[in-house]
Design a protein around this nucleic acid. Structure first.
Length: 155
DNA sequence: GCCAACGTTGGC
DNA sequence: GCCAACGTTGGC
C-alpha cells in the first residue's frame, strides 16, 4: 500500500464537499501536470491512503484522510469543450489526463496547519514542506503518514 | 496583492 | 537542445 497527499483549494473542492458527495466519494479530475498525472495513472492503487490538503486556505492545512477506491482512468473533463479543464490535445482515443476516485475516510477534529507541520521533526522531508513545492499529487512515506495521523490525534 | 518557484511554450 | 517569455501555483 502506498500513501499520497492530494491538494485542493477549498473554494474549488473542499473536504466538506467530499463528505457531502454520494458515498463520500468523488473523482479527482482536473489535474493538468504530467508528474501528477503519472502518479494518478500508474501508481495510485485501490486501498492506498490519502492525506487531504487545503491549499490557498486560511490556514493551509491537512484536513483529513481518504482512500483510493478506483484506479486511474481517463479524465472526462479534458474532453468536454465546455469544461474549464478542457484540453483540445486530449482525445477519447488518446487521453492525456487521468483521474482516480477517492472516498473520504475522516475529517480531522483539528486541521494540521502548515506552520504546525513545519515544527514536527519527523515531517521535515515531506514534499509539501519543501520551498516552492507545487505538485498537487505527492507521494508520502508510510512513516510520514503515520506521523500525520499521530499529530491529528488519530489512533 | 506580491512575488518566488515552477512548468510549459515556442523561436532559434 | 537552449533559453527567454509567459502562465500558474500557493504561501504570505
Amino acid at each position: 500500500m502506498k500513501y499520497w497527499l492530494l491538494k485542493t483549494e477549498p473554494e474549488s473542492f473542499s473536504i466538506q464537499e467530499l463528505q457531502n458527495s454520494p458515498n463520500k466519494t468523488t473523482c479527482w479530475s482536473g489535474v493538468r501536470n504530467y508528474q501528477a498525472r503519472n502518479f494518478l495513472r500508474d501508481e495510485m492503487k485501490t486501498g492506498d491512503r490519502v492525506l487531504f490538503y487545503h491549499s490557498n486556505a486560511n490556514p493551509p492545512a491537512i484536513v483529513g484522510t481518504a482512500r483510493v477506491v478506483k484506479e486511474g482512468y481517463p479524465d472526462g473533463t479534458a474532453l468536454d469543450e465546455h469544461d474549464h479543464h478542457w484540453d483540445p490535445k486530449s482525445t477519447a482515443e488518446n487521453p492525456i489526463w487521468y483521474m482516480v476516485d477517492i472516498q473520504l475516510d475522516r475529517i480531522f477534529a483539528q486541521p494540521l496547519g502548515l506552520d504546525h507541520l513545519r515544527t514536527v521533526a519527523a515531517l521535515q522531508k515531506m514534499e509539501l514542506l519543501r520551498k516552492g513545492s507545487r505538485l498537487s499529487v505527492q507521494p508520502v512515506s508510510a512513516a510520514e503518514f503515520k506521523e500525520v495521523l499521530k499529530q491529528a490525534g488519530v489512533k
